[in-house]
Structure formats: C-alpha cells, structure tokens
C-alpha cells in the first residue's frame, strides 16, 4: 500500500501579472501515496493551492508551468492534451474548493450538477445517473435525497452545500481527491462533520486525499503526512506526528504556536510577524529570513537545503546544519519535543 499514486518533482509555476512575473511555486517535490491523506499547510500565497491545481492543470490563463514533472500513476500530466486531461479530471482526480457558497451553479438543480460528470465520464443514462446521484446524496448525508435532488443550491445551508460539492467530486469514484481548504468557510462544528465525512468515504473507497489548509489545527485530525509550504517551497515535511511534536523549521514553530489550544492559556496566542515574501522578486536566500526570529546570516545569502531529520522527516532550515549555533526553541515547542520523546521512550511508536 505504500506505492506512489501522484509524484511531483521540482515543480515551478509562475503567473504573469501587471506588476510582473510572480513565482508562485519554486521547485516543489512530493509524492502522494495510495490511500493516504497528505496535508499541505501554509498561509495564503504560499503556493499550496497552485501546486495542487497544477496536478490537474487547472490554472488560470496567465499561469505557466515553467519546470518540473507531475506523474499520475505512469502518466505525465504536463504532456497531456486538453482532451486527455478532461478524461482524468473528475474521473481519476477530483477537486473540491473552499467556498461552498460559490462552488455550485446557482441556476441549476443540484441533482443535475451531481449526475453530469457521471453521464460525461461513465456514460450512464440519465436515469442511472440520477439513481446514483441520489445514492451519493445519501452517502454525503443529505436527508430526503430523492426530493432534494431537484432543489437549487440556495435552498441548502453552507455545510450541506459542501456535502453536495463532495458528492460531485465523488461521483465517478476518483482515485485522488484534492480538497482545497474544504472547511475554511464553515463553522467549527460543521468543519468537524465534513472532515469526519471525508475520512469515512476514504475508508470505504481507499482513495488518496490531498488536504490543503492554512490551519495546522485541522491537519491533526485528517492527515497521515504533512508538508509545510512557505514562499512557494516546501520547508518541512514528515509524518503528522513528526510535524506536530518534532517540528524543526521556525516557520512550522510559528504555525504551531498560532493554534489556539486549551493547554496554553498562560501564553498569548502567537502570530507570525511580518508579511509573506515578495514572489515577484524572490529573495536570494531563505524566503522566511525577514520574519524569522532565529534567522542566521547565511539565510540572507543562501537558500537552505532540505536536511534529513529522520527517514520520513525533512526540513529546509540552516538551523539543522552542524555549524549552526544551538538555539533555545520556544517553550511551547520544547514541550512538544518532550511529549514526543516521552511517547517514544514508553513505546508509543505509531
């Protein structure tokens, strides 16, 4: 079960804008394994969405993929014609977006929106597609599916709409689901329900999920592995536990410190200072340099390579170089380290 289903290598994507060429993704590599959930975490503008949309080449017209390879199974996605792409989109790889309020066509019955991809890809008749669409509505937890098939999007709540969007994505039993911040626009309780639903469906179908979010708090509940992106690059990736309890990159620290939690009432909620890097003129050194309280002089001049922390865990920070000074990690991060070491001493291993 540990075979790759999607493999991205050295992906570079840029956008032509009025102000100049924006280098949104600057050499990203990762693999998605069969049946796993990979979370990609980062703030807006970190390139996480662009990376994932590149997989099915769903980018705006002013975007260009400058370098890299993207394999789905044995197929190179970047060499596909639009027609070939359409055969994969929705059938093999599906995507769901952040805002359920705008993801559905307001003037079309939701049932039709669910059955359309099935008619298109699986060549089902209208009636078969309708029957399956009703089953799908049941699956995603829309009550009275038969009657609601004919309803329009505005007759559903936000959470229900996201369920419908998921139903559309699942219509053709895709092998990969890209969830682009699927819970960001929802209430916390609804968020939990949607995540629960996705996990349930994954268990039934065995599909792989790429879960994009800016909220590390959500990730713990869904992901097997986590990749943290900053300034168009992956700065740290590893198993979820490693990212949570043994984070190495100062940016990951910042993200973890900004998760509100009950245990940390004594500390103020942390916000990473400064603003995202200018990707029109990407810095020569580490993109996080300016915002990094632990920045080294070398960060200004050279980009840090990925250092291996464990066979499954890598981080791109000069702090991992043997010449780097020993620094005192923030207290809350140190506490996480302690939990990790304690667990592993007691044999909590996985």
């Amino acid at each position: 079960m540990t075979e790759k289903i999607v493999s991205v290598k050295n992906l570079q994507v840029s956008f032509d804008t009025f102000s100049g060429k924006v280098h949104a993704v600057r050499g990203v590599s990762f693999d998605l394994l069969r049946g796993e959930t990979l979370a990609i975490v980062g703030e807006s503008g970190s390139g996480k969405s662009v990376t994932c949309r590149s997989i099915i080449r769903l980018l705006s017209k002013n975007a260009s993929i400058d370098e890299g390879t993207i394999f789905y199974e044995d197929e190179e996605m970047l060499l596909k014609t639009p027609k070939e792409l359409r055969k994969i989109r929705g059938k093999e790889i599906s995507i769901i977006f952040q805002d359920p309020m705008t993801s559905l066509n307001p003037t079309m019955q939701i049932g039709k929106q669910i059955s359309r991809p099935m008619i298109h890809h699986l060549h089902l008749s209208k009636n078969e597609a309708k029957r399956r669409a009703i089953d799908l509505l049941d699956l995603v937890g829309i009550p009275n599916s038969e009657e609601r098939y004919k309803n329009y999007p505005h007759q559903f709540s936000g959470g229900q709409r996201q369920r419908i969007v998921i139903a559309i994505a699942l219509a053709c039993n895709p092998r990969v689901l890209i969830a682009d911040e699927p819970t960001t626009a929802l209430d916390v309780t609804i968020q939990a329900q949607i995540i629960e639903l996705m996990k349930e469906i994954q268990k039934k179908t065995g599909m792989s999920i790429i879960f994009i979010t800016h909220d590390l708090g959500v990730v713990a509940k869904v992901a097997d592995r986590v990749a943290v992106m900053y300034g168009g690059k992956i700065v740290e990736f590893g198993k979820t536990e490693e990212i949570y309890y043994l984070p190495q990159h100062p940016y990951t620290w910042g993200l973890l410190q900004s998760i509100p939690s009950l245990e940390e009432t004594e500390e103020d909620l942390y916000a990473i200072p400064g603003s995202p890097p200018d990707l029109i003129h990407p810095p020569k050194g580490d993109a996080f340099y300016l915002r990094n309280p632990y920045a080294l002089e070398v960060d200004l001049h050279f980009e840090p390579p990925l250092y291996q922390v464990s066979p499954t865990h890598y981080a791109a920070t000069w702090l991992l170089d043997k010449r780097a000074p020993k620094i005192a990690v923030p207290a809350s991060i140190q506490r996480r380290y302690d939990i990790y070491h304690q667990r592993h001493k007691e044999g909590y291993d996985e």
Partner: peptide
C-alpha cells in the same frame, strides 16, 4: 555566516 542575524528593523526594511 552561521550566527543569529535577526533584527526587529527587518520588517521596516521590508
């Protein structure tokens, strides 16, 4: 090069 090199002024420069 491997020494701490952070200053609060950095944000202003940015």
């Amino acid at each position: 090069y491997f020494r701490l090199h952070h200053s609060e002024k950095a944000y202003e420069n940015e």
